[in-house]
Amino acid sequence: MNVAADMPVHPVLLGGLAAMLDASGALFLPDEGTLVVADLHLEKGSAYGTRGQFLPPYDSRATLERLAEVIDRLRPRRVVALGDSFHDRQAQGRLGHADALLLQTLMAGRDWLWITGNHDPLPPADIGGDVAAMATIGALRLVHEPTLMDGPEAAGHLHPAARVHLRGRSVRRRCFATCGTRMILPAFGAYAGGLNLRDRVFSPYFPAFLTAYMLGQARVYAVGRRMLLPD
C-alpha cells in the first residue's frame, strides 16, 4: 500500500491485518471495509448538565459530525463502536432530535455493531444495529476493555493520550497505543479526556514494545516509548 505521508491515514499492521490509523482517532481495516471507533461518550456534556454544570451541549453533535466526516471519506461497509458509545443509560433520551437523526443517517446502509462498555452495558434497544460484548474479524478480537488474552486485539476504554516535549514546547494529544499485536484506540468523543500512556495501568498490555500514534491536525505521528513523558 502506498500512502503519502500527509494523508490522514497511516498504514500499520495489526496482528498481520492491514490497518489504517486515521487522524480523527478511528481505525480502518480496508480489507474488511470496517471502521472501528472507541468511546464516543455521546451526551457526556448533558450528563454534567443534570448536575448543574452546564457544559456546552454540543459534544454529541461534534462527535457525530466528525464520525460523519470519516465515514464519508472512507466509506466503510461496517462500523464497530468499541463500547462506551453512550455516556450513560439515559443518554439516548437526552440526545437531541437532530443528533439522533444524524446518527440514523450514518447507520443507514451499512452494518453497525455496538460493542457494550461499562458506561453502556445495554445500548439503547431501539437504536438499531447489532449488539455484542465482543467480536472478531479474522483473528482480530474487538472488545471494550483490553484483555491479557493471546492474539491480536483492538480495544478502547482507557482513552490513551501521549505527551512529548521538545525545544521547550510540550504537546499532549490523544493517541493509538500499539505493540503491533494489540492496540488501544483513542477515545473518539468530543468530551472524552485522555489518560497518559505513562500511567501504570497501560504497562501490562505493552510489556515489551510500544508505539504511540499521536493524533495531529492532518495525520498521526509515530512516537517511540522513550519520547513519552508523564503529565
Partner: peptide, 19 residues
C-alpha cells in the same frame, strides 16, 4: 528565553523523526 511558536504538529513531526 523560551523560543515561541505554538506547540504544534511540528513538534510531533520532530518527535517522529527521532523515532
Amino acid at each position: 528565553e523560551a523560543v515561541y511558536g505554538e506547540a504544534s504538529d511540528a513538534i510531533l513531526a520532530e518527535a517522529e523523526a527521532q523515532l
